[in-house]
Design a binder for these strands. Structure first.
Length: 573
RNA sequence: GCACCCAUAGCUCAAUUGGAUAGAGCAUCUGACUACGGAUCAGAAGGUUGCAGGUUCGACUCCUGCUGGGUGCGCCA
């Protein structure tokens, strides 16, 4: 158990002595925002005092008197309106750090009760290029999956690709009429997109073309062998392109079960909804109405699960997907990572699902993120103007990084510079996206995504390489863990590391990778201060070993923390 | 029309169950390279947290109203 967790446990014990019947679940110990107060604080006694009509200062003082943390803290004080502040005793860090340096832990605990969590993210559409709009879902989803895995949970990632739907009528028609085989060879998705757009434009003017496209769709849906074959080819070609991008992004999926996978399940599902009275016919469609008090906010937003023409829509597919996941993996939780525009849709699907399987205890989370805006602050519309393809963005990022690596380190062989540029460029793009609160709208700016200075991934990677450089230069392979504190920068660095576990937990609970970015950036800032003020290799023993221990652990946290963001570290850059 | 989301420094963003004096980066200005990588560091400046009320010991955070922007709303996904 980590130090903040121990403080919290002791605090709760003391609070129970003073207030035997109190619910201490809300009694949390958190790092002090202002270090002048101490290292950790609790503000949780004030609500308890208020509920009982007690004087919060007095309560804090009483709990403080019962609090036995002499082994961990120099100073524990009741302060302000009813806070308790803790200041750690440097000696208390020694066993924790020595254990960490021996590889026994890295300042976090694995979950005692592992959960099974399905994470649904990325979900590109067949025959369309992945553009910047897919970056957030892919990167945030991947990071959430990595965080949960690090914390010891069983994670199942599933890429719910758009491989079915009405667009295939036009695609099939376009394929048959306008396909350029050579273009398909060199850039399949671009060519599929081209013929799709051609037919789409034609349909708007010419009813006959629209009719023909619909006929192709019907043939596909009825299992026509020719159309089925073409459709399979479209899916295969698209997935090959997606996989190329996922490889560049270092993103993997356990499953890629697209919408088409659920086709056989749609009709039986709708029938059961109707048979059980959850859905009913309305204006020719089959609709779920939310008339129960629990679903009051959806009262005016019914959910169509079968269209009046008999076809199913994405709500049907999402419900079938949900049921399949429950039956197949028995998850404790399912996480959907999509943009904010789908909030109502998921609220509807989740509510319909609760009616269908009220006994399911699964937690359903729609992890949404802000709309992508252009630099003018208006929504970034792919249809209207320039769509920035993800592949082009990554190319540009790597090019910029290569230029800088070549400037800084011209003596490195080109292959190595290219590899560094790849890790730095992709890392910068990911970090720029992950570091901000996912709920705020996302302004797409080349400069922001490709920035290599300031609070960016390269800054963190650079801190890591400086540490690697120390070990290289000192020819230090293994260290005997020691810990002595001389300079204030050493203590500040060490204390920060203790919070890695809290941050991982918070990031997992709130689905907010940016908490980890903040933590790592602060770690790197503290490391830089340490680096400026505390010579390592030239320090006399035992200071040298102690500083090497701090360096080693800071590097481990940087590597692991960047790792759960999907960002790699380098020994040299 | 109804619902949801957002508004924080010039710009892009943080702010850990409602907690103490709202923090970073970029840009601007001033400094620091004969210590382990200057993709760095130290410092300055920059704020009526959209407006007006309310709840609270305490509000960027919760409630109400308003302004401005965005998104969605039975047969696209």
């Amino acid at each position: 158990m980590g130090i903040p967790q121990q403080l919290e446990a002791r605090l709760r014990e003391a609070a129970r002595v003073v207030l035997p019947d109190a619910d201490t679940a809300g009694l949390l110990v958190r790092p002090c925002a202002d270090k002048r107060f101490g290292d950790y604080q609790t503000s949780g006694l004030m609500p308890l005092a208020k509920a009982r009509g007690l004087d919060p200062r007095k309560l804090a003082a009483e709990v403080c008197a019962k609090l036995d943390v002499r082994d961990l803290c120099d100073e524990v004080t009741a302060a302000g309106q009813g806070f308790i502040n803790f200041r750690l005793k440097p000696a208390a860090l020694v066993p924790v750090f020595e254990a960490a340096a021996r590889g026994e832990h890295l300042f976090f605990d694995k979950a005692t009760v592992p959960r099974t969590v399905v994470v649904d993210y990325s979900s590109p559409n067949v025959a369309k290029p992945m553009h910047v709009g897919h970056i957030r879902s892919t990167i945030i989803g991947d990071s959430i999956a990595r965080i949960l895995r690090l914390l010891g949970h069983r994670v199942i990632t599933d890429n719910h690709i758009g491989d079915w739907g009405t667009q295939f009528g036009m695609l099939l028609l376009g394929w048959k009429r306008y396909l350029n085989p050579a273009a398909l060879e060199s850039d399949p998705i671009a060519e599929m997109e081209r013929v799709y757009k051609l037919v789409n434009a034609e349909c708007e003017k010419d009813p006959a073309t629209l009719q023909a496209a619909r006929a192709e769709l019907v043939k596909l849906q009825r299992g026509d062998p020719e159309n089925r074959r073409l459709w399979e080819q479209m899916v295969t070609l698209s997935r090959r392109e997606f996989d190329r991008l996922y490889a560049r992004l270092d993103v993997q999926f356990d499953y890629t079960l697209g919408e088409s996978f659920y086709n056989p399940r749609l009709e039986p599902l709708v029938n059961e909804f109707v048979a059980r009275g959850i859905a009913r016919e309305s204006e020719g469609a089959i609709v779920v109405f939310f008339d129960e008090p629990a679903d009051a906010e959806l009262r005016n937003y019914p959910l169509i699960i079968r269209k009046s023409d008999g076809a199913f829509n994405y709500a049907t597919t999402d419900l079938a997907t949900l049921v399949y996941r429950i039956e197949t993996w028995r998850p404790d939780e399912i996480i959907y990572v999509t943009d904010a525009r789908q909030k109502l849709h998921f609220a509807q699907v989740f509510a319909a699902f609760r009616r269908f399987m009220p006994e399911a205890r699964v937690r359903l989370a729609h992890v949404w993120f802000g709309t992508i805006l252009g630099e003018d602050g208006k929504p970034f519309r792919t249809r209207a103007g320039d769509t920035v393809k993800l592949a082009d963005l990554l190319d540009e990022a790597e090019e910029r990084a290569l230029k800088i690596v070549t400037e800084k380190n011209p003596s490195l062989p080109e292959a190595q510079r290219r590899e560094i540029a790849r890790v730095v460029g992709i890392g910068a793009v990911k970090y720029a996206d992950l570091m901000q609160n996912r709920e705020t709208d996302y302004v797409f700016r080349w400069d922001k995504l490709l920035a290599l200075d300031g609070n960016t991934a390269p800054y963190l990677q650079y801190a890591y390489t400086r540490i690697a450089s120390i070990f290289r230069k000192g020819q230090v392979a293994q260290i005997e863990p020691r810990l002595v504190f001389e300079a204030p920068e050493e203590l500040a660095l060490a204390k920060h590391m203790l919070n890695f576990g809290l941050v991982l937990e918070n990031a997992a609970n709130e689905y907010r990778p940016n908490f980890i970015c903040n933590f790592l950036y602060e770690l790197a800032v503290r490391f830089s201060a340490f680096y400026e003020n505390c010579p390592v290799l030239q320090a006399p023993e035992p200071l040298r070993l102690s500083r090497l221990t701090l360096c080693h652990l800071a590097a481990q946290i940087l590597k692991t923390g960047l790792g759960v963001l999907g960002i790699r570290t380098l020994e040299q850059m």
